[in-house]
């Protein structure tokens, strides 16, 4: 099938001998994909800005809910979080989710398998997962460009809820955990989408994943609140059980790092585990792609 296609410049350059040239060509393709995706995202910038601003609305109700909870109890803190800490936590999880959430990624992959559009990536010298990653980075870059202003305004407005600015090493750990959360979120969802090669329709699986993810990532509440809740396994709390799963790295960890809830060796260990999960999910995604494309068949033009 490949031989019947007219040789394009891209294909010609991809066949160039030499490791360096191949690397440059690969980078050029990836960069072109990124620029195209950036332009695509900016077409609907009005809708994008409106959607970004609206995402802050649920936080408002959470702030009032927890203020009411603290108002009704004599406790100074809940699971180590003061009222201000909880508000800051929710705001920080918004930042984390801005990195780790991948709306439409899994569904889009499954749809491309179902409607056959994935086959163009099988005949072109473009790596599908690489293309998806470029598209997602473009999506995020546009999102950050648009969202920085409302985020900065909200954080400035709510600055009283935050503890003093963390030291440089904590800030670096926070930044690293955010970048890793992006890759973890991407590979988690992409792997789910690859299940489309086996099930065609993955919307129910994605919805079930979203439910579990929302609950166990710490998006809904700080996971430290689960410390006293039994898991059903003798001597193991629900919080300990959740720490073994990858979800907390997509919302809880960066927020907890900023607020100083995780420090020293625990912090280093958490980042190592997060990086480990990224590698595991990247490999799982690649294996799912290889096995999926091996069993995939398409007909027609």
């Amino acid at each position: 099938m490949m031989a019947s296609l007219p040789p394009s410049d891209l294909q010609a350059s991809a066949r160039e001998p030499g490791l360096l040239q191949a690397g440059i060509d690969s980078w050029r393709i990836w960069w072109t994909m990124l620029v195209i995706c950036l332009e695509e995202r900016l077409v609907y910038r009005g809708d994008f800005i409106l959607g970004t601003l609206m995402r802050f609305l649920p936080i408002v109700t959470q702030v009032f809910l927890w203020t009411a909870v603290f108002g009704a109890t004599s406790r100074g803190d809940i699971a180590g979080y003061s009222r201000n800490d909880i508000v800051a936590y929710y705001l920080l999880t918004m930042v984390t989710r801005a990195f780790s959430s991948m709306p439409g990624l899994a569904g889009g992959i499954a749809r491309s398998v179902r409607d056959g559009s994935v086959k163009k990536y099988l005949v072109q010298p473009v790596d599908y997962i690489g293309y998806l990653l470029a598209a997602r980075i473009a999506h995020k870059l546009v999102y950050y460009a648009v969202a920085t202003l409302p985020f900065a305004a909200v954080f400035f407005f709510c600055r009283a809820y935050f503890p003093p600015l963390p030291d440089a090493s904590t800030l670096a750990a926070f930044g690293l955990s955010l970048v890793l959360s992006f890759f973890l979120g991407f590979f988690l969802e992409a792997t789910l989408g690859m299940l489309g090669f086996w099930f065609l329709e993955v919307s129910s699986i994605v919805f079930a994943y979203m439910l579990v993810q929302y609950l166990l990532s710490g998006h809904m509440f700080p996971l430290d609140m689960l410390a006293g809740i039994p898991s059903g396994i003798p001597g193991v709390s629900l919080a300990s059980l959740v720490h073994w799963l990858p979800f907390e790295y997509t919302a809880y960890l960066p927020a907890a790092v900023w607020l100083g809830k995780i420090k020293g060796a625990d912090l280093v260990w958490s980042l190592v585990i997060e990086a480990g999960w990224v590698v595991v999910m990247a490999v799982a995604c690649r294996i799912a792609w290889r096995r999926g494309t091996r069993r995939y068949s398409a007909f027609g033009g």
Binding site: A72, I78, A79, L215, M225
Partner: peptide, 19 residues
């Protein structure tokens, strides 16, 4: 059910929503 679980968790820390 997930939302109900969240509310149950909230009521492990307080007896009332708002004084």
């Amino acid at each position: 059910s997930m939302n109900l679980a969240f509310y149950l968790l909230v009521f492990t820390f307080t007896s009332e929503i708002g004084r």
